[in-house]
Write a protein that binds this DNA or RNA. Sequence first.
DNA 1: CGATGACGTTAACGATGACTAACATTCGAG
DNA 2: CTCGAATGTTAGTCATCGTTAACGTCATCG
Lengths: 205, 205
Amino acid sequence: MGDVTSASATPSTPARPRRNRRAEILEAAARLFAARGFHGVPIEEICGAVGVSGPALYRHFSGKEALLAEMLLDVSSRLRESAVAVATSSPGPEQSLDALLDVQITFAIEQPALITVHDRELGNVPEPHRRQIRRLQRLYVEEWVTVLAELHPTCPAARLRAAMHAVFGLLNSTPHSAGELAGGDMRPLLRVMARAAIDAAVNAR
Amino acid sequence: MGDVTSASATPSTPARPRRNRRAEILEAAARLFAARGFHGVPIEEICGAVGVSGPALYRHFSGKEALLAEMLLDVSSRLRESAVAVATSSPGPEQSLDALLDVQITFAIEQPALITVHDRELGNVPEPHRRQIRRLQRLYVEEWVTVLAELHPTCPAARLRAAMHAVFGLLNSTPHSAGELAGGDMRPLLRVMARAAIDAAVNAR
DNA sequence: CGATGACGTTAACGATGACTAACATTCGAG
DNA sequence: CTCGAATGTTAGTCATCGTTAACGTCATCG
């Protein structure tokens, strides 16, 4: 989180840390966008948060919207990749579901800012990339739906999709209840609630 | 509706044509804020959506932030009032819980834009009102926690609070899954999922 | 009838903020 | 040592946007 950005102390001797500026900027931007929204955060502030100032951003991204696009693309493709990996390496749908839950919960707990931005700021991504991100998100949902459909073949896919959106809402609520519960207790709580919600959705008549 | 609207004091002839521009503007603003965020929507566009243009907004609100503040204050006080009414008029905690679920689900389904803005844009409300809105939100959550604590006295309050945030996330996911399911099917689905999630949270381990 | 006040308009003003230009500095080749 | 990326910096530019000013209209009321 809030690491020491005391870097540029003397303007005479810059450039030592050798750290990846790109990644730093993406991380700071995620945190700030999550707090005040894409248009609520000036570039100046993003770069200031990592110790460089202003137009340095254009050395790493072609613009503010490109920064957001890359951020969302990265998140959605990582989620999707994890889901595919999990689904293909599990012996059966039951284990797949468990592993999928683990993926999403881990992501929600460890990257709350990214998760928040991911489902709020798609509307601010310019059209070339928007479609691509949407596609990845859809594929991610479909991984879940496929697994659930194996477990409950009689449940209509539309219902499974709607239920999954609700479950994502449940799991992604973590950022809003930060600090409510001891860190270690959050994960099992989310897991048991999500599991119960899913079971209820597919079973209820 | 918290402030003193002049002219309502004179009982002589309050029968103005009273087109509710105020309400129209609030509604349009909610829809637009939900889609692109507070800072993503110019005043021009809000007013344009209701047929007037530009600075006409200042005939009804003291500024853009005041508009947002009133919107959030209205939502949070309405929710809180409904919760209090429900809790005091139900014969027991079990019925209270059912009624609370009904309140939240109805609101989420009928006012998706308001719900969305309500839990995204608090960070853009200036400090005088921010505290007040937070307070109302907290009181709303406490209504739920009180009811749940009656039903499950052994469950720590912190866990109940965390579980409730997750349930709100589940119920407020409606805007994201708009159109996924036939209108009439959404309500019972959300209800059964939320109920199962709550039961799992308070019973597990 | 005039005065008043609610409500709207267009034309500015001023701040902010995204982006560009021009100009250093460091460092790893060659 | 020199060249040229890579990575910063500061000082603009230009569009956008919140807000105010000045002005018009029309219904109501004394």
